[in-house]
Amino acid sequence: MEASATADEPTPTRRDFLFIATGAVGVVGAGAAVWPLIDQMNPDATTLAAASTEVDIGNIAEGQIVTIKWRGKPVFISHRTQAEIEAARAVPIDELPDPATDQSRTQKPEWLIVIGICTHLGCVPLGNDGPFQGGYFCPCHGSVYDASGRIRQGPAPKNLAVPPYAFDGDAKVKIG
């Protein structure tokens, strides 16, 4: 439309303006109509509302790692032994591929809570497996995590992620 109008007359005229304005309004409307199409695929209200999970941790024995489901993903709750805590805290930070202190990754030294998704390509690592005591080993591509869930060997680029959580007394933790 615009093209045929400008072909006749080189300078913009009122007619050009009308065609351009109509075209612009049409484009804006089409653009606005696209947003609901995109947004409908975002997490819905039920998914967002069920974002927190309460876990009873009173029964988890020392040295035991349990897996619970949060937002559809596995979360490891590890009740670490004194030896595991000490080993995790003794590592020099600058030797790590993704440097982080064990203190920064835990709220209470005996509890490590991490999302059980390998940061390589999303497989679930095995707990209490691999070369580190109380550590994790991903069977898919051989990534090795220590008892603090930090990446030590293998293709994964980052440490296991720590979800937001809060202790409710000694026996309960709320994740999310």
Partner: peptide, 9 residues
Amino acid sequence: VFAALLYLV
């Protein structure tokens, strides 16, 4: 608004 513009066009 869009319909009015289209009518003018």
